Amino acid sequence: MKFINSFRKLLSRYRYSAWLLDGAEKQSGENLRIFYVGAGTINKNYFTNLVFKNVTKDKYLGRFWLSRPLGFIPKQAGGCDLAVTDIEKWHLADSKQPCFYVPCWVDGKVDIDETLRLAKKRESIKSDLRRIRKHGFTYDIERSREKFVEFYEQMYVPYIKNNFGNEAALHSLEGILSRVDDSELLMVMKGDTAVTAEVIVYRNNEPWLMCLGVLDGDRKHVKAGAINALYYYRLIHLKSKGFKEIDLGASRGFLGDGVLQYKKKWGIGLTGMRENGFLIHRLAKTAGTRAFLLSNPFLLNGQEGFSSVCFVDGDKLPTEGQQKTMISRFAIPGINRLLIYQLGGNGSLLDFGLDAPVPVEVRRF
């Protein structure tokens, strides 16, 4: 039986499900048709929600062997604009076509002292701290098994399901409880009530933020600044324990992701990616693919490490002010360069003359 289970697991790494997705691209409303291949539905749902305003077709096409060339399109999915394959990085050697490999999840850390210095001068963080003081948030630490169960049932599951819907990737209660002996529950208090909390796991002598939740999943606590308080008090607490860095856990690899951008505000530096990524092939130069590329800047993981990638309209090049915004949003610590792809246009390449913390390359696409 053990051999059979191992064999099935091995096969699952080569045989993936496929879907045909068709609908209106989220920002432009242009029609977009995607052939999507992946092992599960969570990343598929995430990608679908990211890309489409509404989906007119979500058709399951069956299962396919990844022994076929990546980017292979079966007859029943002909006429697609994009092919997207959710695969482990080691499969990339099989790809013979130009493509982008976008991490499904990226990891990052913060330097505690550096982030506390940021908190004194970065206006967006100073605003968060004023809100914390206004609402009188404090924090407490719990270690009892019962409190972890309460957190899971009353905070974590409601918040993740309410916030992420059909793309929620939930830890199991068993998985959290298995780490209780090496964990703490940091709770943000409003008076005597815990309104948000997170599980801090101490592994390899480093704190890792496993998961967080909000009481009843109620966004009124988020609007009041409870998660801001969580970000701040974790720094205070872990500094008091003598730690220098915090592993912030995973974020999505698309640069417009709200969680990633919020972590960036608090000083995240990218450290690596998880096993899987979205391998994206552009199959047709349509209005839909153009809109998708212009609307969804992403992290690229390659031999040279992380790059931030964005696309600009060759007929309407970004102004100096827009270029400054690009640097501010996309130059995340941990990337090695900012790649700007210019779509169309008959003129010269964008002259990116602003100073940036990383090299900037402009290419046609």
Rank of each mutant, 00 (worst) to 15 (best):
T193M: 14
A119V: 03
A77E: 02
L209P: 06
D22A: 14
L61F: 00
K239L: 09
I160G: 03
E88L: 11
I246Q: 10
L118W: 09
V55G: 04
A331H: 04
G23Q: 01
T196Y: 03
Y159K: 05
I125V: 10
K44C: 05
L300E: 13
V195F: 00
L61C: 12
K75M: 08
D315H: 12
G302T: 07
R131I: 06
L230T: 11
L343E: 11
F254M: 05
T325L: 14
K134Y: 10
K89Y: 10
I132L: 08
G258Q: 00
V222E: 09
P297D: 03
L238T: 03
G277L: 04
Y232V: 09
D313K: 05
F137R: 08
A331F: 02
A83S: 14
G40F: 07
R179T: 14
V84E: 07
C211Y: 06
I87H: 02
K44I: 06
I268W: 02
D192I: 14
L248E: 09
R219V: 12
S295N: 14
G40S: 13
V358W: 07
K263A: 01
G321V: 01
E167S: 15
T138G: 08
T85F: 11
E88C: 10
S124D: 10
L299A: 06
W90G: 08
K324E: 11
L21E: 07
S240E: 04
R143E: 12
V199D: 10
D22M: 13
N346Q: 13
A39K: 11
S28V: 06
G305T: 02
G217H: 04
L339F: 10
S6V: 07
G305N: 02
E150W: 06
D111I: 01
R274G: 12
I268Y: 01
S95D: 13
M326C: 05
L21N: 07
L294M: 11
G277V: 00
G267H: 02
F352T: 03
G302S: 06
N301T: 00
F292H: 15
E146W: 08
L279P: 01
D58L: 10
V309K: 07
A226W: 05
G256Q: 13
I246P: 06
A197M: 12
K244H: 07
K244R: 15
N346A: 13
F292C: 09
V309D: 03
G225Q: 01
G62T: 00
L338G: 05
E142C: 13
A331M: 04
Y36P: 07
K223V: 01
D94L: 15
E146N: 11
Y139P: 06
S307Q: 08
L185Y: 14
P103R: 11
F311R: 04
F64Y: 12
L293Q: 09
A356I: 06
Y159D: 06
V188W: 12
K9H: 09
L350I: 04
F137A: 00
G272F: 04
Y202C: 12
R274W: 01
G302Q: 11
V222A: 07
L294T: 09
K241P: 01
R131P: 00
E30T: 05
F243G: 03
G267P: 05
N276P: 03
V188P: 07
R145L: 09
T85Q: 11
L235I: 07
L260H: 00
F330I: 03
I280V: 11
P359T: 05
W208L: 15
H91S: 04
G267Q: 01
Y341D: 05
R203N: 13
R219E: 15
K89S: 15
